[in-house]
Design a protein around this nucleic acid. Structure first.
Length: 1112
RNA sequence: AGUCUCGUAGCUCAGCUGGUUAGAGCACUACACUGAUAAUGUAGGGGUCGGCGGUUCAAGUCCGCCCGAGACUACCA
């Protein structure tokens, strides 16, 4: 391969993997008793894979591959999430039906089959992206959540919860769409456009308190009303309590009602007086203002009489505002003031009208009150407790004049709505009865049903719950043992979520999902929870006998078949299944067990801890309350264990401008195209190296291109360089390894860096920090291996015989390349394998046929030499400084110079530099280094404070001290260096400083070509003589001839003859450096002639000479 | 509305437990180097470290408030 072509490499390696079953070998070759457990969070094949899936799966893949290389067996069972509303919706959409049509226009049978099909709609695309991105997961034996066996395991889990008393049926307030006749999930409510601004009639009502329940502080003022605001007046007949904030300050105000003009005393939060007593009112302390008040007056007087806390108000009883009905249960506990922490003083009156049947907060506050406040439920014709609004959204007949009306005008069919909504009617009635303090229109945000476009009601619905609150402490405790990446997702986001845990609402009234396996008698006195198919069979048998039926276990455990099953209670009554399905999130949280059909099969996998808990899972951060929670909750509640030990929650993939990708905006990146064009490895490497997985990734295709060029391109070049000469010299790794101590400095240096790198990269992968790992590999390849090692060692590869030095160079570079292939393999599996195989297949040094079957390199600490690393750093920096002086002085690098001078601070520095002297000299084309020990009068030293150590000593004198140090004279510095101590007096305080506190460096000096980089200073002697100039010319000729060789497509080994046009410059160069030139360009002869029939090339500024180059 | 995360050069990101003149890559400009050549080196421009306050000898870093982006939860009188 002449040029890097990543997609081609992808295809080649994929084929190799397929043909040789590398993936299954990577599992089977590892011992079964040394496993690393990974769980695949099931995607839904109902949607197409996006670029963010490539991100998430790269994270999963890379740690699994890493652990495999560490010798672990990593089983990776794939899975599909197959239930849930999105699937029902897409079926209904494609068939053009609605929920109501199920059972009429389409049989449930067909509907079911349709869901099954739809669920796997894009499976082929998913399989394709999985392969193309190089994600290793077992797609041949996936778990599928709609399988009977999967469902059976879920039933078993529910059975466990049931036996522990953690499953119960109860009321909650849920969003409900009367028009559609169905409850809505929060997911549905979060569809775009559901929340809309609407204008509603709002009422501030006056709740008249009962005198003898008032606290002492409020007695003696006559009648007192509490003001409470509502945006939904239709809930006022269902009011059973008023909620105040215990810590909020309330005031008693004397004023007049603006509609009836009757005098009234009202209670309202102090902070909201201004808001409620607006322009229509004026505050006054004058009693006369009240005596003289007339209904025709423009403004109404008011006066604050008293201030009390909410705490004092708790317990006050009041007259029912609209006494249509009484709660059927404990009505004596209704109509009183209770406390609630959710009360704010941002809106209304600081008192919340509380209707427990229509508000979640209301219900909670009412339940928590002592004694509990009953909700406004009445008994219907069948003796069932029901709210005052029925499921159609109409008032019940108890409401008299407004009974039978819809509570929202929007629910009427078009054109049939009355002029006055019930909200308005109630407002009018309250005004007339002196119970309305204020009525006004108000614009607020309110959710609407996405299907019917009509407002949602919050309505009490029967649901099955998991009593997760009972296990809260266990969950919190277990969570503390989980290693979260990043930590704050676990501690903060997930931790807070657990602290505020609610019971888990399991019920969904749908068709396509796992049916709740609970059967009940009609009067709900007896019930059974089925936890296996076997158990179901037995119960069916029993029921058949007792009830004379002929039922059998349905082939498909889904609705509607399962609904047809009737069971029999111990007392012989018929039991029907509770019609609910369970939350699909339970499906996915059950996968550790259900994927193995536990406990009906594979008992040991879980019980012996072979596949449980997971060592590692990864998913988007949006799964914190989703999959991460359901896994944790089920494991905590059923097994009292964690489900996973390490979890990476990755961020979102945004477009390059940081905007969420969406079809609407057209900024969606197609993963197939991307991988096709740039290759999977560049895409993966870009995603991992560019940002930490848990930060959002601003996905930019140009970034992939950059990674391809900078990293893969450089590595590829390095590899091609290696093979070019390895082929010429026939290096196939058969020589015995040359001992480190016999290899040159630079070899030992790169090997030292390599082993430091291995150590760091392994630690990063082990710590789930892949970004750091990739960045370190990139730095090594780019800066150290390519731009220093290879650049400086080029000659060793193409010059001279196949000597030990050359073999050492090959062995060194080979080790680096093979090791890099292993270090990068988890992230860039295909390129790494290509590189590894190319290298290893040629040498056969390792027996593995793929890098993914090889073991992760071990860092050999004996090869790490920090002093060596330091002196190479010196070499790089000194070279860089010299080059910068050359640049400043405009002296080209091909012009040799005599010497460079290095002022030194200590002898260790000399020793260090001496060892890398030859590298520096050849790199910068200078003949010698001279060390300057005596710098006085030549180059000045300067002192600078070490803020870190000095700050602790000097404290507040730091500023002056630092200033004093920069002003040190040469004598001061000499004294410090000699004695090792320096006494300093600042504002009367005396301090003793040590050399550690002061950093000495060299100053720049006029008249010398000096450059400084922190602790290193170099001075360059730029004087030239004839010899140097001639050598410079010689190098120019070498360069030009090499260029000609190359442009003439000569082989690197071809011998040539050269003819150069005669000129003073060419004569000087050739006469003095003929051998050098011949040697460099592989020339047998160099001839100078007056007329040369060759290429005209510029040698130095303005001088063109003809050169002819011919093969021998 | 609450909780959490993020905000550093035109772009993508480093910046450890507070410490000197805030760094790197990309992009841009100029010059060089080159038997790895779609690579490389040197130099240059470019920053109120989101804003305001506070703690401290010293704040990009710690604390408070605000602004902006995002995620999740809730939608509430």
């Amino acid at each position: 391969m002449k040029q890097l072509n990543l997609p081609e490499i992808d295809a080649k390696i994929r084929k190799f993997w397929d043909e040789n079953s590398v993936f299954s070998k990577s599992i089977e070759e590892r011992p079964a008793d040394n496993s690393f457990v990974f769980y695949e969070g099931p995607p839904s094949a109902n949607g197409k894979p996006g670029i963010h899936h490539v991100m998430g799966r790269t994270v999963k893949d890379l740690f699994c591959r890493f652990q495999t290389m560490k010798g672990k067996r990593v089983n990776r069972k794939g899975g599909w999430d197959t239930h849930g509303l999105p699937i029902e919706l897409s079926v209904e959409q494609s068939l053009g039906i609605t929920k109501e049509d199920i059972g009429t226009k389409i049989s449930v049978d067909d509907y079911n089959a349709e869901c099954r099909k739809t669920v796997m709609q894009y499976k082929d695309l998913w399989d394709d992206i999985t392969r193309k991105m190089g994600y290793w997961v077992d797609l041949d034996h996936p778990y599928i959540t709609f399988d009977n066996e999967y469902i059976e395991s879920v039933w078993w889990l529910l059975g466990q919860l049931y036996q522990k008393g953690l499953l119960y049926k109860g009321y909650t307030i849920q969003p409900y769409s009367p028009a559609a006749g169905t409850g809505l999930s929060s997911h549905e409510l979060n569809q775009p456009g559901c929340y809309r601004d609407v204008t509603d009639t709002t009422v501030v009502a006056q709740f008249k308190t009962i005198q003898d329940t008032l606290p002492e502080a409020l007695k003696g003022y006559g009648d007192i009303c509490i003001l409470a605001w509502t945006t939904t007046p239709w809930t006022l007949p269902s009011n059973t309590a008023l909620t105040v904030g215990p810590k909020i300050e309330y005031v008693l105000i004397k004023t007049f009602n603006q509609y009836t003009f009757e005098p009234v005393n009202v209670i309202i939060a102090k902070a909201l007086v201004e808001k409620q007593f607006g322009q229509k009112y004026f505050e006054t302390g004058e009693e006369s203002a009240f005596l003289q008040y007339l209904s025709s007056d423009k403004k109404i007087p008011f006066s604050v009489l008293k201030s009390v806390t909410g705490e004092e108000l708790i317990g006050i009883r009041y007259e029912q505002l609209l006494p249509y009905a009484l709660p059927y249960e404990n009505p004596e506990n209704a109509f009183r003031v209770i406390g609630g922490n959710f009360v704010t003083t941002e809106d209304g009156t600081g008192v919340v009208h509380t209707a427990p049947t229509f508000g979640a907060d209301d219900m909670k506050a009412a339940k928590e009150a002592v004694p509990p406040v009953p909700p406004m439920l009445v008994l219907d014709e069948n003796g069932n407790a029901v709210p005052l609004v029925n499921l159609q959204g109409k008032f019940r007949s108890e409401l008299g004049d407004i009974g039978g009306k819809y509570v929202k005008n929007e629910y009427y069919a078009e054109g049939t709505a009355p002029e006055r909504s019930v909200d308005v009617e109630i407002a009018i009635r309250l005004k007339e009865e002196n119970k309305a303090f204020k009525v006004e229109k108000y614009v607020h945000n309110y959710p609407h049903c996405w299907r019917t476009d009509k407002p949602v009601l919050y309505y009490p619905l029967d649901s099955w719950f998991i009593r997760s609150t009972a296990m809260k402490d266990k969950m919190i405790e277990l969570n503390k043992t989980i290693n979260w990446k990043p930590a704050h997702t676990g501690e903060k986001r997930f931790g807070n979520w657990l602290e505020n845990l609610n019971d888990w609402n399991l019920s969904r009234s749908r068709y396509w999902g796992i049916p709740l396996p609970i059967w009940r008698t009609e009067d709900a006195t007896e019930e059974i929870c089925i936890d296996s198919i076997e158990n179901l069979g037995k119960e069916i048998q029993k029921a058949n006998e007792k009830l004379g039926l002929n039922q059998s276990v349905p082939k498909d455990l889904h609705r509607p078949y399962i609904d047809d099953v009737n069971l029999v209670s111990p007392s012989g009554k018929s039991m029907k299944r509770e019609l609910d399905l369970i939350d699909v999130w339970f499906d996915s949280g059950a996968m550790p067990y259900a994927q193995w059909h536990y406990p009906m099969e594979n008992k040991d996998l879980i019980n012996q801890g072979i596949t449980f808990p997971a060592d590692f899972i990864a998913e988007g951060v949006d799964q914190t309350r989703g999959w991460f929670f359901t896994l944790h909750a089920i494991a905590s509640m059923v097994f009292e264990n964690v489900a996973y030990k390490n979890v990476v929650s990755n961020g979102l993939v945004l477009d390059k401008n940081g905007v969420k990708m969406s079809k609407r905006l057209g900024n969606v990146i197609d993963p197939f195209e991307t991988i096709e064009k740039y290759g999977a490895d560049a895409t993966r490497w870009y995603m991992i190296s560019n940002a930490q997985p848990w930060d959002n990734l601003k996905f930019d295709l140009e970034g992939i291109d950059e990674v391809r060029r900078k990293f893969f391109g450089t590595l590829f070049n390095t590899y091609s360089f290696f093979t070019l000469y390895a082929n010429i010299d026939g290096f196939v790794g058969k020589e015995a390894s040359i001992p480190m101590e016999n290899r040159p400095e630079i070899d030992r240096w790169i090997i030292s860096l390599l082993h430091s790198l291995i150590k760091d990269v392994e630690a990063d992968f082990a710590d789930y920090e892949p970004t750091n790992a990739t960045r370190k590999v990139m730095t090594f390849v780019d800066e150290h291996l390519s731009n220093w090692y290879v650049r400086l060692c080029r000659r060793r590869f193409w010059k001279g015989d196949y000597s030990d030095d050359k073999i050492a160079a090959y062995q060194t570079l080979y080790e680096c390349l093979v090791t890099i292939s292993k270090l990068m393999a988890p992230v860039a599996p295909m390129f790494a394998d290509w590189l590894y195989k190319n290298l290893n297949d040629a040498t056969g040094l390792e027996k593995h046929e793929s890098v993914h079957l090889a073991y992760f390199p071990e860092s050999d600490v004996t090869k790490i030499d920090t002093k060596l690393e330091q002196r190479m750093d010196y070499a790089q920096r000194i070279s860089s400084l010299i080059l910068s002086i050359r640049k400043k002085e405009n002296i080209r690098v091909r012009q040799p110079l005599t010497k460079v001078m290095l002022p030194i601070l200590d002898n260790a520095f000399v020793d260090q530099v001496d060892m890398v002297k030859s590298l520096i000299l050849s790199e910068v084309n200078v003949k010698d280094i001279e060390y300057l020990t005596e710098t006085e009068g030549f180059i000045n030293k300067k002192a600078k404070a070490n803020f870190k150590t000095l700050g602790k000593i000097l404290g507040k004198h730091m500023k002056t001290g630092a200033q004093m140090i920069t002003e040190f004279s040469q004598n001061d510095i000499a004294e410090l260096e000699k004695s090792g101590l320096y006494n300093m007096v600042i504002e009367g305080d005396s301090f003793t400083l040590t050399p550690e506190d002061i950093e000495i460096s060299f100053d720049e000096v006029q008249g010398w070509q000096v450059a400084v980089d922190r602790d290193i200073t170099v001075a360059l002697d730029i004087s030239l003589n004839e010899n140097l100039i001639a050598e410079g010319y010689a190098r120019e000729f070498v360069n030009r001839i090499q260029n000609i060789r190359k442009s003439s497509d000569f082989n690197v080994t071809d011998r040539i003859v050269v003819e150069i046009e005669k000129h003073q410059v060419s004569e000087e160069a050739v006469s003095k450096f003929e051998d050098y030139i011949k040697n460099e360009v592989l020339a047998d002869r160099i001839k100078l002639s007056e007329n040369v029939d060759g290429e005209s090339v510029e040698i130095i500024d303005g001088l063109n000479l003809n050169i002819r180059v011919e093969k021998v």
